[in-house]
Amino acid sequence: MATSTDVLEDAPGPASGPPVTSHSATLGGEQKRSVEQITLLLFIAVPFLAVLAALPLAWGWGVSWLDLGLLVVFYFVGCHGITIGFHRYFTHGSFKAKRPLRIALAVMGSLAVEGPVVRWVADHRKHHKFSDADGDPHSPWRYGETVPALLKGLWWAHMGWMFNEEQTSQEKYAPDLVKDPAIRAVSRQFIAWAALSLFLPGLIGGLVTMSWWGAFTAFFWGSLVRVALLHHVTWSINSICHAVGKRPFKSRDRSGNVWWLAVLSCGESWHNLHHADPTSARHGVERGQIDSSARFIRWFELLGWAHDVRWPSADRIASRRKEQVADAA
Rank of each mutant, 00 (worst) to 15 (best):
A2Y: 12
D6T: 11
D10P: 02
G13K: 14
P14F: 09
S16I: 10
P18E: 12
V20Q: 05
T21N: 07
H23G: 13
H23D: 15
A25S: 09
E30V: 12
R33N: 09
L41G: 11
L41D: 02
L42T: 12
F43S: 14
F48Y: 09
L52I: 10
P56C: 14
L57A: 15
A58L: 10
A58H: 11
G60E: 13
W61M: 14
G69L: 09
V72K: 05
V72E: 04
V73A: 13
Y75R: 04
F76C: 06
V77M: 07
V77L: 12
C79P: 03
C79T: 13
H80I: 03
G81W: 02
G85D: 00
Y89D: 02
F90W: 03
F90S: 05
F90Y: 12
G93R: 11
K96N: 14
K96E: 10
P100L: 04
R102I: 07
L105Q: 00
A106S: 07
V113Y: 04
G115M: 00
V118C: 03
V118R: 00
D123E: 05
D123Q: 01
H124E: 06
K126E: 13
P137V: 06
H138L: 06
H138E: 06
W141N: 09
L151A: 11
L154K: 09
L154M: 14
A157C: 04
H158L: 15
F163H: 06
E165F: 13
S169P: 02
E171L: 15
P175G: 08
L177Q: 01
V178M: 07
P181M: 08
P181D: 08
I183C: 05
R184A: 06
V186T: 05
R188K: 12
Q189A: 15
W193Y: 15
S197N: 10
S197C: 09
L198Y: 15
L198F: 13
L200W: 09
G205D: 07
S223P: 06
V225R: 08
I237Y: 03
A243G: 07
V244Q: 11
P248I: 03
R254I: 03
V258L: 01
W260M: 11
E268Y: 01
H271V: 00
H271M: 00
L273D: 02
L273W: 15
A276M: 01
P278N: 07
I290Q: 08
S292N: 08
A294G: 03
R295W: 15
E301F: 04
L303S: 08
H307G: 12
D308P: 09
R310V: 10
D315P: 04
I317H: 01
I317M: 01
A329Q: 15
